[in-house]
């Protein structure tokens, strides 16, 4: 018997998770739909005369991050309750399978459902705005996003990776923190980000003292007298590696820590 990972057991877990939580998912989905409808209604009513697709996209991202965080934080909520924790931990499946099942529902199912609902509701709002424009083309305007723009594509890519990382972080919070998990995870996340910003500012200030401009992978020094210009940079391979890790490492890193926390979990 494979004690590490079995797709058969994973499939059973996915089915079990859905069957036992179908009511909760249904109510959650309806609540999400209601919230999105309220947001769209407010946007159409207080958006002024010029509506921007960019606002819609920003609203989509804010909702995705908040709702995704809440949903991810609920994933291992069973472990903060003794009775439920025993039921969950003694189920014959490996910790890896249980984690992958949670990631599947968070990252794939939730994201697809949220995006689908957002698309449907936002299209309703856009249709309403287009109706306004048709009725009064001089008063109302709708500015679309150029999705072929490289900057926009880069932005979408960065937000997608960041979303994976944020979800993974909240998933970890649901295992590691027993009470007020969402609030505490948010607070810890905020502290880490603030700490990182301060650290970078400190580094940057240290480089400035020596008349260097710094951006993690290289530093430049200028001198007006005699036109001295120096650039200090790490190798291309090292800089590519740092950029790659900075983009992709966070979600797998948090998943790995979550897996260890699950293995260590005692009830």
């Amino acid at each position: 018997m494979n004690n590490r990972f079995s797709f058969k057991r994973l499939l059973l877990l996915v089915q079990k998770q859905f069957s036992e939580n179908v009511k909760l998912y249904l109510y959650g989905t309806l609540a999400l739909l209601g919230l999105l409808a309220i947001v769209m209604f407010l946007w159409t009513q207080i958006g002024g005369n010029t509506y921007k697709e960019e606002t819609l996209f920003n609203l989509y991202l804010i909702g995705l991050y908040i709702a995704g965080g809440v949903f991810a934080n609920y994933s291992f909520g069973m472990l903060s309750n003794k009775d439920k924790g025993i039921y969950w931990l003694t189920l014959p499946a490996s910790h890896g399978e249980k984690l992958v099942c949670a990631i599947f529902y968070n990252l794939i199912v939730f994201t697809i459902i949220y995006t689908l609902f957002y698309f449907v509701v936002s299209q309703g709002a856009v249709a309403y705005i287009k109706g306004l424009i048709k009725h009064d083309p001089f008063k109302y305007h709708y500015e679309t996003i150029n999705w072929n723009d490289d900057d926009i594509n880069d932005e979408v890519t960065v937000f997608t990776y960041a979303f994976f990382a944020v979800q993974a972080f909240y998933l970890l919070g649901s295992v590691g923190i027993k009470r007020f998990s969402f609030v505490l995870t948010t607070a810890i996340g905020a502290l880490l980000i603030i700490g990182f910003i301060f650290f970078m500012q400190y580094l940057s200030a240290s480089f400035s003292k020596n008349s260097l401009s710094f951006n993690i992978i290289n530093a430049r020094s200028y001198s007006n007298e005699g036109n001295v210009y120096h650039e200090y940079s790490i190798s291309r391979f090292a800089s590519d590696t740092i950029i790659f890790l900075a983009k992709f490492i966070w979600a797998p890193f948090f998943w790995l820590v979550t897996w260890f926390k699950l293995k260590e979990k005692e009830i």
Binding site: N3, L91, P92, S94
Partner: peptide
């Protein structure tokens, strides 16, 4: 270690 092979042969009624 809570291996699946172990868990499927043990049941606890808390």
């Amino acid at each position: 270690e809570r291996k699946p092979a172990f868990l499927q042969d043990v049941f606890i009624v808390p």
